[in-house]
Amino acid sequence: MKKKVLVEDPKGKFLKIYMDFDETINEIVITGDFFAHPEKAIDELQENLTGVKAESGEIKRILEDFFKKKGVRMYGISSEGLYKGIMECLEGEDDG
């Protein structure tokens, strides 16, 4: 199932998330006008989420671990905003 959502992150920016998933997440693309240093951290997070079981506990754990990592600095994007967006994808109707 393919899904695209727009959520407002509590850190103030809008996140647009695209997901392709069934029991597991096949693909996720995180887009928006936020800042991440280093930028490739977002690619790494997308990789960390790919292949993961599409259920809330595991996703929440990966997001929280990721945002605790040393050396990654994010502005306008948070684990809460991403969690909200990903759960909206999982719970929504198919966009085709």
Partner: peptide
């Protein structure tokens, strides 16, 4: 556009 934005969007 910003590095993380989707051009088409």
């Amino acid at each position: 556009i910003g590095y993380f934005q989707s051009l088409a969007e």
